[in-house]
């Protein structure tokens, strides 16, 4: 049957089809690899900062994040279309931490003995400021700290609620409570006077 033969001749050979599919897959993978790579490098620092706000154990945070990114890579074709893939990474890593390390976190977070005492009158560089700030964050209830840190990174209240599994109304209260407590800790440590007279809204705006 020539027609059949002819038409068959027009169709790609099964082997060709497979090869084309593979080439497509490879191309797609390449695109995804690059996309995911960029996403990872850009989001990692933020995700880590947010998780470390509520978790003292840096190693645990790193492990949880690595697993979350791996799972994220596996399902990147789907996750890439999410509103903010980093929210999924945070939720996933955080759930892992909560499941595996809940005890350790709360215990260290509430230990009042190792509060840092006395501080330098003025913090010279970014690193010092970051360490000091993280020290204070870790003395806050973890929820408050996580909410505060996310808001510093520009997440909206609704995004925060959904990422951390909180009620919408809670976010505002946790944020205010965190702000209050941080201010108190800063004052206790002797940081009371503003260097630069506050510009309206300058210090409160998200970045």
């Amino acid at each position: 049957m020539s027609v059949v033969d002819g038409s068959a001749a027009l169709l790609p050979e099964p082997a060709d089809e497979e090869a084309a599919q593979q080439a497509d897959d490879a191309r797609l993978k390449e695109i995804y690899d690059e996309e995911f790579g960029t996403f990872s490098v850009q989001s990692y620092r933020i995700a880590e900062g947010i998780l470390r706000a509520g978790w003292r154990d840096h190693e645990a945070v790193k492990d949880a994040l690595q697993t979350a990114y791996l799972h994220g890579r596996v399902h990147w074709p789907k996750i890439r279309s999410y509103t903010k893939p980093i929210a999924w990474i945070i939720t996933t890593a955080r759930n892992r931490l909560l499941k595996e390390h809940d005890r350790g976190r709360r215990e260290t977070a509430t230990a009042p003995e190792d509060l840092p005492t006395g501080a330098q009158p003025s913090l010279a560089d970014t690193w010092e400021a970051q360490e000091t700030y993280r020290g204070w964050l870790q003395q806050l209830p973890p929820r408050h700290a996580e909410v505060f840190q996310m808001s510093r990174h520009g997440f909206s209240n609704e995004e925060i609620a959904r990422t951390l599994g909180l009620a919408d109304t809670s976010v505002r209260h946790y944020k205010a409570a965190a702000n209050r407590q941080l201010r108190q800790l800063a004052e206790q440590a002797g940081y009371k006077d503003s260097d630069s007279r506050r510009r309206p809204g300058g210090a409160h705006g998200s970045r």
Binding site: T126, A129, Y191
Partner: peptide, 25 residues
């Protein structure tokens, strides 16, 4: 120096080379 100054300072810098290297790793 107060909390706002410290926050501003802590968030001022772009990620350092070390942080970037860690993210890339």
């Amino acid at each position: 120096m107060d909390l706002d100054d410290i926050l501003a300072l802590a968030e001022a810098a772009e990620p350092g080379p070390l942080e970037n290297a860690r993210a890339r790793r």
